[in-house]
Amino acid sequence: MTEASRRRAMAKANRVVTFRIKRCDGPGKASYWQDFKVTVPKNANVISCLQQIAANPVTADGKPTTPVVWDSGCLEEVCGACTMVINGKVRQSCSCLIDDYAPNEGDVMTLEPMSKFPVVRDLWVDRSRLFHNLKRVQAWVPIDGTYYLGAGPKETPASQATHYVLSTCMSCGCCLEACPQFNEIPDQGSKEANEAAWNKGFIGAHAISQARLFNAHETGKELKEERLDVLMGTGGVNDCGNAQNCVKVCPKHIPLTESIAVIGRQVTFHAIAKFFKG
């Protein structure tokens, strides 16, 4: 028996747990807290409790309210959608089992939206900036189109193992929530203005790690210089404050600090080469 299964075995069936949820009706509106009491069966996760609240939106003191809004998708921790701050720590809510967090009758769990992205409503945030930052580093392989041109490059199992881990990044945003250098940029009113503002902000560990992945690919390295140009500029790898929080919260155990170090070295060599080229 693992420690987790032992702990879960101790949790009481059908206990009442209070969910303290930070709510917000929409952009520009003030946040407020509401408590909900949920009867929790064994093995329940945060999602199944939120589903109960959605079907029966009544607060702990019996007042009818609106259902809590949240973002979700696969419910098996491969899509990244349901990321939120639970008891102060950022993680996916689908893989968050109540038995681990609130094993006893009357225990309290707090749910908050991620704080580094604009809230859409309640626990749902707008992570467009995260995807935009993947464009900044051209996180793709520049193939010659989709026509049949034979196989890709061969790869050793060791190299595949390294790349596979980097490639499991599901763009959830945990590394950004935990990063002291990545701060919320308020909505600028238009897509263009937002993108201009994002281009100045710290790009984040996830995008740096993706740059590492594609710089290492036989065809992907075609864009290496352009990626490094971006990463040596404003909001690039030098903005990293080395807090190392990112790697601790990554649900996929991606070696983010190692990626930052690799890109840091690449940027240094790139800068020196540029200096001598003039």
Binding site: I143, Y148, L149, A151, T156, P157, Q160, H163, H217
Partner: peptide, 15 residues
């Protein structure tokens, strides 16, 4: 083959 060119990290043999 196309997915391979796009960079999908397919598992590999020793060769």
């Amino acid at each position: 083959d196309l997915l391979d060119r796009m960079g999908v990290p397919f598992n590999r043999t020793s060769e």
